[in-house]
Design a protein around this nucleic acid. Structure first.
Lengths: 173, 173
DNA sequence: TATTGTTATACTCTATAACTATA
DNA sequence: TATAGTTATAGAGTATAACAATA
């Protein structure tokens, strides 16, 4: 492995590239979503909710790596706007089960359109194959960090191996 | 489970993955750098400065995609702490030429060590070859967006417009 | 007592406009 | 007039602690 240890200087660290690219992406979200009166974090929350389906606020906060206290205010705003529904879990009344409403899904459709252009523009330098590569690499990083799960299962399973072990949605932590 | 509008749903968009991964990376920077009393953005600024060498604040702001008004306060803090030097460009006294000081370089060495663990942890899911792939893909995206240039040349390229000559900023490398 | 979610608060980061000093 | 940088300010995002209700 030629990890260029000659000088720690020559390369901007991965995390820095990731941080800047992420900030750029967030900025594009903000600009694109402003006409919809939707904040970047609000979008991220409902988009994630769309991906994993209904879950508790704690699970959602965990999936997004957002502090639960901050998620509380986000879900509060989304609920006030009728984009999500919140119901107490009958088996544990402390838990709030959150879920997209029809309005939420509709807005998400508009939001997806709104961010499309900026999205494509950011990927402009890469060909189709490379985009797939990038997707795969980012997804695997996110999976390993338990960030932005694609399915409800991933959201709840700790570090269960990807193969076979998918049995019951054991929720132990 | 209703097969609801999954049409455009199937995938979390690139930008969302990028945004979350970037936020995670920034969060790790913050935690790792706190003992050094260095903010994430402060680190990003001096790290970028290390990469491209001395340049004007405007060029630096442009390279990082940070608004120049915000960069002004960042460089103010860094200067107050003796991490960077600021000198007026003799040929245009409006311009501030910023540059790392010896102390700045030293702190950067410590900062690099501090973020190392979190950096590796984030890349844990990827093998050596895949890390190189990821680096290449991210770098090309950033290059196309003129973000986080690796060299001074890249940082100044966009400034090509009102120039009849390469001017005083040209410094081959 | 531990956990789910809420409120409050402080801090960091981002965006915009008004201002200065040079050009 | 236009440009480089600064200041001020409002808004968005993050981190922590204290709290209520439930388990």
């Amino acid at each position: 492995m030629a990890q260029a240890s000659e000088s720690a200087v020559d390369r901007i660290p991965y995390g820095l590239l990731l941080a800047r690219l992420g900030q750029e992406s967030t900025a594009r979200f903000r600009r694109a979503l402003r006409p919809l009166n939707l904040g970047a974090q609000q979008f991220i929350v409902i988009k994630q909710l769309q991906a994993i389906g209904s879950c508790s606020q704690g699970e959602l906060a965990d999936a997004l790596g957002i502090d639960s206290s901050n998620l509380a205010s986000l879900t509060g705003q989304l609920y006030a706007r009728g984009l999500i529904e919140r119901n107490r879990d009958p088996s544990d009344r402390r838990r709030y089960v959150v879920e997209l409403t029809t309005e939420g899904r509709q807005l998400l459709t508009d939001a997806d359109k709104a961010i499309e252009a900026g999205e494509q523009d950011m990927l402009n330098a890469l060909g189709a194959t490379e985009r797939e590569q990038l997707w795969d690499l980012l997804r695997r990083m996110a999976d390993a960090l338990e960030l932005c799960p694609s399915t409800e299962v991933e959201a709840c399973v700790e570090a269960a191996g990807d193969q076979g072990l998918a049995g019951p949605t054991s929720r132990s932590q």
